[in-house]
Amino acid sequence: MAELFTLPVLLGIAFSGIRLATPYLYAALGETFAQRSGVLNLGVDGIMLMGAFSAFFVALNTGSLWLGLAAAAVVGLLMGLLMALVSITFKAEQGISGIGLYMFGLGLSSLLFRTTVGTVKTISGFQPVKLPLLGDLPILGDIFFRHSLLVYGAFLAVPLAWFILERTTWGLKIRAVGQQPAAADSLGVNVTAVRYACTGLGGVLAGIAGASLSIALTNLFQENLTSGQGFIAVALVYFGGWRPLGVLGGALLFSFVNAFQLWMQVLVPEMEADIAVMLPYLLTIAALAVAVNRTRQPAALAKPFERGEA
């Protein structure tokens, strides 16, 4: 057990943990916007899969990773708007429409993969970029500042999301729409428009989350590449109490424990692997249960808005 806490191991955990956290961060930050505006989107995993496929397909055929990333964002936007149409305009039960969106995204991404790419191929994805100065730091430079641009992007998105939500008029509108849609409406805020925008933005970020898997972290696509990471991302929004910093904490906790358990399997071979694999899930529940986290969810979450009632 002691060898788990040596410097090389801790640095290895940090390196893997940062990479693992990347897709969760994008997807969970996007879902934070959707939920703060009052829309529960359980279909994040389906959007991620469509984003991952689109990015891979475009990058494979054009040779341009940036075009691939753009494709993932556009497809993510379309999927998000589909969710918005069903959930906001048609006021569907959101817990169920999200499951429908997930099934649709899982099926369609697999189908498109089968008919266009056919078999597993790898591409050369976003390469690690050494940040000037920071990348030259001893030890820390290797761990924190030699990742691909999409990894940096995920961590930069955290303060950006915080700033938008807490320090801009648009953020104020989002929060108002999620808490008191009727009051926001009476003050002239277009509830429907804000929710569409947030669900669409959530879709864009989920699409990029998928792209980070297929063209930066694993550099391939296969059926069900995300294997349920979108659901974990939704859970992390609750973990983070609908705050970008809290989401960052949740994503890092989950991913670092996941990286930790891999090292534990290597260094403590007598430990059952199946138990090690459970650790991130167990600890995430436990951490939330013991943390003093009583953030109230947005009051209007998952409740469709109809002008003139309430």
Binding site: G46, L82, L85, V86, F90, K91, A92, E93, I96, S97, I99, G100, L101, Y102, M103, F104, G105, L106, G107, L108, S110, L111, F113, R114, T115, E223
Partner: peptide
């Protein structure tokens, strides 16, 4: 491909929950 089945079911769910409104 069997993935078509999932695609169809997802569409059915989205259309049905939408029509409920």
């Amino acid at each position: 491909p069997s993935a078509l089945v999932g695609t169809l079911l997802g569409l059915v769910v989205l259309f049905v929950v939408g029509s409920d409104y």
